[in-house]
Amino acid sequence: MSDSLAGTAEVEPAAAQPGAAKPSAAIPRYVEPGQPFNRDTNYIEDRITRDARDGWPVEAGRYRLVAARACPWANRTTIVRRLLGLEGVISLGLPGPTHDKNSWTFDLDEGGLDPVLKIERLQQAYFARFPDYPRGITVPAIVEVASGKVVTNNYPQITLDFESEWVEFHRPGAPDLYPEAHRAEIDEVAELIFHDVNNGVYKCGFAGSQKSYDRAYDALFSRLDWLEDRLSTQRFLVGDTITEADVRLFTTLARFDAVYHGHFKCNRNKLSEMPVLWAYARDLFQTPGFGDTIDFDQIKAHYYVTHVDINPTGIIPKGPDARVWLEPHGRETLGGRPFGDGTAPGAPAAGEEVPTLG
């Protein structure tokens, strides 16, 4: 989904950034005066499974994942796809970080067209299947290449299905990100993180009243303190390996100091001022499959340009210096096996690299 309102496309202000969509006079608002932020969690619930129960079979080359670098929810899918080695099985389309009121656009591609789907807007894939689709045009989305129709945008289920339904296409040495023995705990931890952290930062940033902001702020930092304590004695959130729970937390932590601390008023402290969580986040960032999916320039462009009711000037901050993510973290002393019995993924696929920080 989009980084703001469960994927509802936003409109940039007149001061367009490189690679941004053309500005529009119709600027949606994300802060409803007097109201708390409520995320729309209604998605296209079709699944791609081995038994094709919804009519969509697991099949190499049949689908394209559309996932903007800017979006934390889409970022989950690109991480899991990398860790499991699905790059040669499910292709990746990358919209630009900003867009107009109608849709995410492929303005980073030559001619403004996705090179596989041959469309300018993700909206076209939604309308190809649902001509009167009434909800937000969200990333991540999986599109069937041959028909050009969106299959699903149910981001929590997409990664779980990558892990459990696409097993025959996992690379040799792919880690088990959703081990059966730990699924109940992974689900429990991930649910707490979603409400208080992943979505909690948005509840702060898009709060329409002081009361709703205060409530979200307190819940956010209470949960971060809980995580700081939990991770002080164990390297990863559940068990001794990286799991789906770590993926879900990481994409919010990666954006915290660059965006949420200032832009969303999550400013009790920076992530870099929480020693355990900061070391944990750096540990994951420096793990192949995590940091090599992060583009801080696109992240900042999305938030600071598209949320015009929060940042009406569209000015993008220059800081913080992202090279701090490469500093030693020392988490190896806690033990743990990042990939379990598996191995690290190889280098990113050609054309999928992000800017280096060194």
Rank of each mutant, 00 (worst) to 15 (best):
L334K: 01
I294Q: 09
P317A: 12
H302Q: 06
I316N: 00
A349W: 08
D295Q: 10
K318T: 05
D295H: 12
N311M: 10
D295M: 08
F339K: 02
D297E: 11
V305Q: 12
T343Y: 03
F296E: 02
I310G: 01
A349Q: 14
R337P: 00
G319W: 04
I299A: 06
A347F: 03
F296S: 02
A322Q: 15
T333S: 11
I310V: 15
Q298W: 00
G336S: 07
A322G: 10
Y304K: 03
I294V: 13
V305S: 15
I310Y: 04
P345N: 01
D309W: 14
D341K: 13
Y304H: 06
K318G: 13
R337H: 15
E353C: 05
H307M: 13
F339V: 08
H307I: 13
T306I: 07
I315N: 07
G342S: 09
Q298Y: 05
E332D: 15
P317S: 13
Q298N: 10
L326Y: 03
P348H: 08
R331E: 06
N311Y: 12
G335W: 06
D297W: 02
P338I: 12
G340F: 07
P348N: 10
T313R: 07
R337L: 14
T306S: 15
G346F: 11
P338T: 11
D297V: 11
T306D: 13
K300N: 00
P312Q: 11
G340N: 09
I316D: 02
E327I: 00
V308D: 04
Y304N: 01
E353F: 05
V305K: 12
P328W: 08
A344K: 01
P348R: 11
R337G: 04
G342Q: 04
V324G: 04
H307G: 02
K300Q: 06
A350L: 14
G342W: 04
K300F: 07
Y303H: 11
L326F: 05
G314W: 01
I316C: 03
I316P: 00
A349N: 07
G340K: 05
I299V: 15
I299W: 02
L326V: 03
G351H: 09
T306H: 02
A322D: 14
V324Q: 06
D295K: 09
V308M: 12
T313D: 15
G314Y: 02
D341Y: 00
E332T: 03
G319P: 04
E353W: 02
P348Y: 11
G340Y: 06
A349R: 13
F339Y: 15
P345L: 08
I316E: 04
A301I: 00
P338G: 07
G342K: 02
P348E: 13
Y304D: 02
G336D: 09
G335A: 07
D321H: 05
G335L: 08
I299M: 12
A301D: 08
V305C: 14
D341M: 08
A347Y: 04
E327S: 08
T306Q: 15
E353A: 14
F339A: 05
T333V: 13
V305P: 02
D309F: 14
E352Q: 14
P312G: 14
A301F: 03
H329E: 12
F339Q: 01
E327M: 06
V308G: 09
D321M: 05
E327A: 14
W325I: 04
